[in-house]
Amino acid sequence: MTWRSLNSIMSIILIMGGIGYAVNLNQSASQALLFSSSGIGPAYFPNILAGLLVILSVMTLVKNLRDKSPKNIEKVTTHNSGYILVTVALMVAFLASWQFLGFFYLNVFVLLTVLMTLYRIEFGLKNSLLVALATSVFTTGFLYGLFGQILALTF
């Protein structure tokens, strides 16, 4: 994907977001005018913002499509994109597991171990797993002591 495509997709998402926001706003605040004799109800200011967002996003989209500079048609490169995707996937799994199963500290321990093992995989699986296990035990213990015992927070 080129920078131009990514920029265009983001502009379109912003335009759709602006329209979606305005539609939802005007549905939920349909009684807005009841609260205002001058027409300046709760939807007045947000509608201006939604309009401005759509206009500005269209401007960016047009500007971007007209930009034929070499940099704009360059391919988007993201170093370690696989790691970013794995991190997002692990966060989703962690949040789902914590929300539906509980066991916060166990989940933290597993998340830390898996993340650190993956991030350090270039040092070999055995080495990275051992280092990750040791660091995760220490970190989870520290978090439990600080948040669970001293601050008495329940997760």
Partner: peptide
């Protein structure tokens, strides 16, 4: 600004863009 307007309107109590 849009993110700051989400929620119950402090002046009228009307819900705004809470989806």
């Amino acid at each position: 600004l849009i993110a700051g307007t989400v929620g119950i309107d402090s002046l009228t109590g009307v819900n705004r863009a809470t989806f």
